[in-house]
């Protein structure tokens, strides 16, 4: 049988050092392959760790919110799409937490950061932790956060002084570009859809607007992100108005009341069975 008969034949291929586990696919790339994990001279380990932790927290909390759509999404295909995006973010979180543990001197692992910290120790931006709301809020939040994170990662991929962070960012850029595309298409589709879908999309945009300043205070990419958001809003017939910013910042550990219950669910198994392994 030739590969032309079956698009999935490539899955059974055996790659070097990578036995064929059909169910998991083969030929996966290690995004950090060949990257030196030693801290480069002149780089402040504590500051680097804090940056990795904050970017990891953003991704972990949003991934958990996206996972909460499982069994609740409006369509089977959307459920899978949102879970896929969440898993991309979870992968970014793991690499960033691992790097934080290597550079903050504590020797902590990814589980320590994800499962053994309380809400006050998380540094994610608050937009990631807000409740899911309806599908309009889901996609407009995803649009904003993925456009913002994409701009941050594009910059880090080119300029980060830490080669590990640069490699993690370079991997994330491809994922985030798809997340942004997915979200933007839905925002346009619903914003330019029926009267009701337009109204709910406009409401959703107004609900996230107060949290935009926090994003740009945390990572200064306003110039790259705002034109993207305006372009999508214009295509969708939506108005992205100036809004009073919600005071405070998740980067300083100031969170809404919604983060603690999210973490309680995320950490419940790890806390019920401390030290358990698969």
């Amino acid at each position: 049988m030739s590969d032309d008969d079956n698009a999935y034949l490539g899955l059974a291929e055996v790659h070097e050092g990578d036995e064929a586990h059909w169910a998991f696919g083969t030929g996966f790339e290690d995004p950090l392959h060949g990257t030196d994990t030693a801290l480069p001279p002149g780089v402040d380990g504590a500051a680097l760790a804090a940056r990795c932790l904050a970017l990891g927290d953003d991704a972990l909390v949003l991934a958990q919110r996206l996972a909460q759509w499982c069994t609740r999404a409006p369509e089977l295909e959307e459920e899978l799409a949102l879970a896929n995006i969440g898993l991309d973010l979870l992968g970014q979180t793991r690499l960033l937490y691992t790097r934080a543990g290597q550079t903050d001197g504590s020797g902590r692992g990814e589980d320590d950061y994800a499962y053994r910290r309380d809400a006050g120790a998380f540094r994610n931006v608050r937009l990631a932790e807000l409740p899911n709301g309806d599908f309009a809020e889901c996609v407009v939040r995803l649009l904003v956060l993925s456009a913002w994170r994409l701009a941050v990662f594009e910059r880090l991929a080119g300029t980060a002084t830490d080669p590990v962070l640069a490699a993690v960012a370079a991997k994330g850029v491809k994922e985030l570009a798809y997340h942004r595309l997915y979200a933007a298409e839905w925002v346009v589709r619903l914003g330019d859809g029926t009267e009701e879908s337009h109204r709910r999309m406009q409401q959703a945009l107004e609900a996230v607007a107060p949290y935009l300043d926090e994003l740009f205070a945390a990572e200064d990419v306003r110039e790259q992100v705002e034109p993207v958001l305006r372009q999508v809003a214009d295509s969708a017939g939506l108005v992205l108005a100036q809004t009073a910013a919600a005071p405070g910042s998740g980067r300083d550990g100031e969170h809404t009341e919604h983060l603690a219950p999210l973490l309680a669910e995320l950490q419940s198994v790890a806390r019920a069975h401390p030290g358990a392994t698969w």
């Binding site: 590969d3 032309d4 008969d5 079956n6 698009a7 999935y8 034949l9 490539g10 030929g27 369509e75 295909e77 899978l80 799409a81 896929n84 798809y178 595309l181 997915y182 298409e185 589709r189």
Partner: peptide, 30 residues
């Protein structure tokens, strides 16, 4: 879908979508 080593696009299944672009993203995800 055209596989990595494949020369042709091969039928892999079907799905529901509201428009062509959505069908493409659904296909990518599924």
């Amino acid at each position: 879908v055209r596989g990595k080593r494949g020369l042709n696009h091969v039928h892999v299944g079907s799905l529901h979508a509201a428009d062509d672009r959505m069908a493409l993203t659904h296909a990518r995800d599924l």
